[in-house]
Amino acid sequence: MEPTSGAAVSEQTFTPGTSSRALVELRHVDKHFGPLHVLRDVSLTVDRGEVVVVIGPSGGGKSTLCRAINRLEVIDSGEIAIDGRPLPAEGRELARLRADVGMVFQSFNLFAHKTVLQNVTLGQIKVRRKGRKAAEERARGLLDRVGVGTQADKYPAQLSGGQQQRVAIARALAMDPKIMLFDEPTSALDPEMINEVLEVMRQLARDGMTMVVVTHEMGFARSAANHVVFMADGRIVEETTPDEFFTAPRTDRARDFLSKILHH
């Protein structure tokens, strides 16, 4: 390990292949929606195998941050690199990069006209160019793993929210992503279904998946996260361990927020 010189260089540029630990790097990212400044000079590093939980008040820019990482949202300035490679512009190369970044949405977004099995094979066949048989085998394995193996031939609308979300996780995992992004994966679910989804995510974390999770589930943050990032008004206000964040938040903004979600 060379301590300082390497770090100083990578402050300036992204050098492909050299930074071995960082999987996602955001540098001084800014983003506006019209007059609204939603990301203000956001810098964040997610290391390989790390689970980062992003938490904060509504409208703080958590979703935008998450979506910027696979360029569903285009940033105004700053840099984002995944595995040492800066995000390319819209096109074939970006599509290839997105295939390496799994995304799970609050509203599941399963393809409504395809069966559960087809949802999980589609990307493998059309993006990864796998054969149908291999893709189905992998899909069934993943569906079993998330506990919905028996639902393979149903359509999304026939499943409960918790089941749909687990299918969505399987769909993302089928691409063998380097990282998984979760944008409030449980906030559209009935309370009794939240845990089945969180359990799948905990298992993923234990298996070493790199994850960025926007969530207000403190139990999950405490048990699975390596870092908690507290975002408000487009800024990263605090970045620390879950224990420290929940027991001794450093900023008033975070204390205020925590008291609200603890005593609702």
């Binding site: 569903l72 997105r98 295939a99 390496d100 977004n109 589609l122 990307g123 059309k126 993006v127």
Partner: peptide
């Protein structure tokens, strides 16, 4: 968005 996130063009 889900389709684009999978890497479809």
């Amino acid at each position: 968005e889900a389709a684009r996130a999978l890497g479809l063009g």
